[in-house]
Amino acid sequence: MDKILDKKVINYGEAIYEAITQEMARDENIFVYGLGVDDPKGHYGTTKDLHKKYGKLRSFDTPLSEDAMTGIGIGAALAGLRPIYVHQRMDFLLLCMNQIVNMASKIRYISSGEHSVPLVIRAAIGRSWGQGAQHSQALQSFFMHIPGLKVIAPTTPHDVKGGLIASIRDNNPVIFIEHRMLYKNAGYVPSDTYEIKFGKGRVLREGNDITIVGVSHSVEDSLRAADLLKGVGVNAEVIDPISLSPIDNEIIRDSVNKTKKLLVVDNGWMKCGFSAEIIADVATNCESILCQRLGFPETPCPTTPSLEKHFYPNPQNIAKKANEMCGGDSEWNPPEVVQHEIVSFKGPF
């Protein structure tokens, strides 16, 4: 049977697990480490029992020590291993910044290409159930800012598997961004291994009226918004860039040259962020494009649900904004859409 046709429905978390276990079987230089990777929950199941399958040398828990653990991964990578360092929250990467920014991203450059750092750093963005100020930050722009790093934030089970395999096989440090609200997303995933390409985005929905670009979880809400927009006769094109650095500017430019309107839905703060970067590229390289953006307000994330609902962009306000940009009725109030992954999430962490 054709292996590529052999596909099945699994969820995002399972797809990550599959990528790791298949790659570990292929290459014994790959190892997985991080807080709780060998605990009973195995980081949303993505690392569950890898230590039983591949031994404790290849999947191990660490002291908290994020700063040193990052450097240790870099050192191991210099010596030819291919580490995958796992973080429960992206916020914890702030303890690793010196190693990532001053070391991992620079070593190839300062060794005239003789050394490289094939290190994958996985980190999950948190949301809801009171994650609040220090457990919900989406810091993709910090890493997109740094030459010498690759950054990827897949949203579908298909892309998360192919994206992780590509990251593991890549000879550069890769910041691999996951989202807590995506782990349960189900979709078709080929059983065999495959890579998706860095710097290649995907048009998830075709349309001629407006281009909506999301990132990580906001891609989901952008698709929901596109559904709402159909109800008022607006055909939105929804783009998932998947890879944030390098980023597929071409796919966005092509789309906006057709639709003449761009709405970027950030999954983070807007200032100096992902949306700023996308819009800057379009402003520099395309003509007469109406640009707007949505994202987090300039405040830390509140824990209470009564304010959290005003903090995140949602399908309704994305649709409303897009409709207005298309000259639609500003009085239109899109019907409420259930964000089932958020409503059904009950913590505790």
């Binding site: 609040g132 100020a133 220090q134 457990h135 509140p302 824990t303 209470t304 009564s306 304010l307």
Partner: peptide, 25 residues
């Protein structure tokens, strides 16, 4: 924290109980 901090960020100014952090150490 007027509902914005949750269980992980308690504080009480009068009692010299400084706002708590959820990032270990």
């Amino acid at each position: 924290a007027r509902g914005k901090g949750g269980s992980m960020h308690l504080n009480d100014y009068e009692k010299n109980f400084i706002p708590t952090s959820a990032i270990v150490s």
